[in-house]
Design a protein around this nucleic acid. Structure first.
Length: 827
RNA sequence: GGGGGAGUGGCGGAACUGGUAGACGCAUGGGACUUAAAAUCCCAGACCCGUAAGGGUGUGAGGGUUCGAUUCCCUCCUUCCCCA
């Protein structure tokens, strides 16, 4: 019997066209089925679809297809995170319009995604660079402004000299720019911020309820938010009314304070030394320190440098006076920009105090009770009884912690306080290809928001891309406008928004991407949100996932949604590796997705990606492995085509079955159970695919044994074929669709119900039981799975080989695990 | 420096609740088919000793708990990620 070859090149485009034309994957809210929102992190359209993308989509699509067959009403959309630097750089170097460049890239990206045969509802596609989308960035900005969640202030900011723009704290990695790795500088600039710190506590607390997020992502977010409890303490200046406030997590050490250090940026520095003979020296020092990066300044291996201001303060708890210094290792961004020095109980303070000859005063003793500030060689950071601490002497420092705060509060010296590492989100970018911030500056009225009915503020086209400065400043038509308030001349804000704003609410927009009244239709969002399964790279563990959570809470507080957390379940996929290194252009080890599909077809590529590794782990690329997946699909294709006549008869149960047929049916039903469980509960596609391979092998053995006519067990074989096609359809949808038609079933395989297993057919009639003697496997025997402990014990002891082991020895212990093993201990 | 993963044949990986380590696949060796090759199909295989039956060793290293540990606990090594 000859059969047509498996030819993905013909078969895949054919089915893709058919799916599109029948609008097979369109989703609507009008359904009695339970909703499921499955989402992949949308890509930045660079034009190249790399293996990381492909892996992301192969996982998401398999899952979405599985859920549809399981009976859910699935929303599975795709869009493009289309603002950003590469488009603008192309404009500078090649003089192409960023909008055109981006549109072309999106088209290229989309065509590869279509070739993958992904089951997106393409009618919901969006691109964040479209005015219909970024309109809503501006709208949300205005609402945030009204509520005080957006504000402008001058602050020392991270400046990337190479990108020519400022960066948020989250976008600085190891002191470098997250995009180009250039060393980040500090600059004082007027910038727009979003007040994410207002939600710091909620963002932290709600992590606990995200049961289906990877623990490490939650840990990373917790560390990033960095909540710490402690106290804010006020220190009066000697000879002045001025007060310096510091935050500390160790109020129990206040009696050990021997100096105070200010950050070079601290606003009081200039005032403190004004007119004194130290003025010049201190200001010069501060100037030099500020020019260094935060990384250099806080490097713990490096010598700390400071300078005395000559001024002194009073420690309110004991009335003693100590010096105030300025030092480079204190940063203005953390706490209040002032740090109390307790050298006896903080190693950094200790090193600093020894270097500058500052006193070291022990207030917590260790177990020897012999700590002495003058002789100790390192700080004691442990716990113990308090000494030299007034009313607290003799008490344990940990236990007294709360009482210290009360003591401070009662005397008006300070208050309990909570500190966060999280800073407000700096959203201004001095770039063209982003969302214009909808604000106008008027000589008379000051900063005036653009009225809602004048949105969107569109990006102008009369701009020059020189590579220097913000291109928006070269556009007179954009720059010059009239004040919405007094109609006088006004000047538009030329900063654009951080593109992470675009990705902070796009998942709401998918629920109705054309909606014109608000960022999204509240009713539709109420139906679809939250996202039930989100899939993307671990690199977004902090940035995007934190911003998106913040926005969701912000939108909730605007009354647009009841949802407080956007993503119920999160899957972070592992990287794609080749030859032991991350697949990247710079490594030169990239395997282009398009080439893969050209050679083997989309189904093979998808099969290999899912089979080679579980989704969360790294995936080692192997060209030979791909070959293997292709061989498997070819084998399935031939097997089904050559045996399609078997489907004409009855399926299972309705004919006399011999033992071999019965065992094939068992294999079929156990495979259904295994594959379902692997996808649904374990999210482990590699083992699901292995299970299908095993069933294919089993079926092939069966058919070879029976010969082409298959007199007995036709039903069992037919059932296996049908099940294989169905189980395969989430992973290799084109081939499954083709084979489904081949075996005479109605279009489409994607609309079929996921096969169910018959529990009776998953129970085997016999299990192999292992007999261990002193922990070593010495024999095996077949037993009834229901056999009692007593029966198994007797059966094991009857085995001649086991008898030999027992001869001349004393049986010490015997353990029986029903259905599994008998373990015998002898001496 | 702090926090969190990971370490299993030649390779990717499996072993889900402490119960037969190495499923499935790749590569390899042997065989069938073929004039030949490709493709396909069948068989073999952790390592060591042994013709074999069988025995011993084995999940990064060392120790512990247990009748039994890839799985739990302690110490250490290597590596990756995050934060400094």
């Amino acid at each position: 019997m000859s059969s047509p070859r498996y030819s993905p090149r013909e078969l895949e485009p054919k089915w893709q066209a058919r799916w599109e034309e029948s609008r097979l994957y369109r989703s609507t809210e009008k359904s009695s089925r339970e909703k499921f929102y499955c989402l992949e992190m949308f890509p930045y359209p660079s034009g190249d679809l790399h293996m990381g993308h492909m892996r992301n989509y192969a996982i998401g699509d398999a899952y979405a297809r599985f859920l549809r067959m399981k009976g859910y009403n699935v929303l599975y959309p795709m869009g493009y995170d289309a603002f950003g630097l590469p488009a603008e750089n192309a404009a500078i170097t090649r003089k192409v319009d960023p909008a055109k460049w981006t549109r072309r890239s999106i088209e290229r990206m989309m065509s590869v995604q279509r070739r993958m045969g992904l089951s997106y509802d393409w009618e919901r596609t969006l691109a964040t660079c479209e005015p219909a989308y970024y309109h809503w960035n501006q709208w949300i900005f205005l609402k945030f402004l009204e509520r005080g969640l957006a504000y402008r202030r001058s602050a020392p900011v991270n400046w990337c000299p190479s990108c020519g723009t400022v960066l948020a704290n989250e976008q600085v990695e190891n002191g470098g720019c997250w995009r180009c790795s250039s060393q980040v500088e500090k600059k004082d600039l007027e910038q727009w911020f979003f007040k994410i710190t207002e939600y710091a506590d909620e963002l932290l607390k709600d992590l606990d309820a995200l049961e289906n997020w990877p623990e490490r992502v939650k840990t990373m977010q917790r560390n990033w938010i960095g909540r710490s409890e402690g106290a804010e303490i006020d220190f009066p200046l000697v000879g002045s009314d001025t007060i310096i406030s510091t935050f500390t997590t160790r109020p129990d050490t206040v009696f050990g304070i021997t100096y105070l250090v200010l950050a070079p940026e601290h606003p009081l520095v200039a005032q403190l030394v004004s007119g004194s003979e130290r003025e010049k020296a201190v200001l010069d020092f501060a100037d030099r320190a500020m020019r260094q990066s935060a990384i250099e300044r806080t490097d713990e291996t490096r010598d700390k440098v400071g300078i005395d201001t000559g001024r002194r303060f009073i420690n309110p708890v004991n009335g003693q006076q100590f010096p105030i210094l300025v030092a480079d290792y204190v940063l203005m961004e953390y706490g209040t920009g002032a740090v109390m020095g307790v050298p006896a109980h903080d190693q950094r303070d200790f090193e600093f105090a020894r270097k500058y000859g500052l006193p070291v005063r022990v207030v917590i003793q260790d177990e020897t009770g012999a700590l002495d500030g003058d002789t100790m060689v390192c700080a004691y950071e442990g716990d113990g009884p308090m000494v030299d601490s007034g009313p607290f002497n003799g008490r344990n420092n940990r236990e007294a912690m709360g009482h210290f705060v009360t003591h401070l509060e009662d005397n008006g010296w300070g208050r309990s306080a909570v500190g966060y590492r999280l800073r407000d989100w700096l959203i201004s970018r001095q770039r063209y290809w982003g969302t214009p911030i909808p604000v106008i500056y008027c000589g008379g009225c000051g900063t005036v928001p653009v009225p809602e009915d004048q949105l969107p503020v569109l990006l102008p086209h009369d701009v020059e891309f020189t590579g220097e400065g913000n291109p928006l400043e070269t556009s007179p038509s954009f720059l010059n406008t009239s004040c919405p308030s007094c109609s006088g001349p006004g000047r538009r804000e030329t900063d654009t928004m951080d593109t992470f704003i675009d990705s902070s609410h796009y998942f709401f927009r998918y629920t109705d991407p054309a909606y014109g009244k608000l960022p999204f239709d509240p009713d539709k969002a109420a139906y679809w949100m939250p996202v039930d399964q989100y899939i993307g790279g671990i690199e977004h563990a902090i940035l995007h996932l934190l911003y998106a959570r913040f926005f969701t809470k912000g939108l909730r507080d605007l009354g647009l949604t009841d949802v407080g957390e956007p993503f119920t379940r999160l899957l972070t996929q592992g990287m794609v590796i080749k030859d032991g290194a991350k697949m990247s252009k710079s490594m030169g080890n990239v395997v282009p997705a398009e080439d893969m599909m050209e050679r083997y077809g989309a189904d093979t590529a998808r099969m290999f990606i899912l089979f080679a590794s579980p989704p969360e782990k790294e995936l080692e690329w192997s060209d030979q492995g791909v070959e293997g997946s292709f061989r498997f699909l070819t084998r399935v294709h031939r097997l089904v085509v050559e045996n399609r006549h078997l489907l004409n008869g009855a399926i299972g149960g309705q004919e006399v079955e011999d033992e071999t047929a019965r065992s094939l049916r068992h294999a079929t039903h156990r495979t259904i159970r295994k594959v379902t469980d692997d996808i649904e509960r374990r999210f482990q596609f590699n083992t699901a695919i292995s299970a299908i391979m095993e069933l294919v092998n089993e079926l092939q053995r069966f058919l070879t044994e029976r010969g082409p006519e298959v007199t007995a067990g036709r039903g069992a074989a037919g059932e296996a074929i049908r099940v294989i096609v169905l189980l395969l359809s989430p992973f290799a949808p084109h081939l499954a669709e083709e084979l489904w038609e081949t075996i005479g079933q109605p279009y489409s395989v994607a609309l079929q119900e996921w096969p169910q297993y018959d529990p009776d057919l998953t129970v085997s009639s016999s299990v192999e039981v292992v007999v261990q003697v002193n922990g070593k496997v010495r024999a095996r025997f077949a037993a009834n799975p229901e056999a009692s402990e007593e029966e198994l014990k007797e059966a094991a002891l009857r085995i001649p080989r086991i008898k030999e082991y027992l001869e001349g020895s004393e049986l010490v212990k015997l353990v029986v695990v029903p259905g599994k093993l008998v373990s015998i201990v002898v001496r």
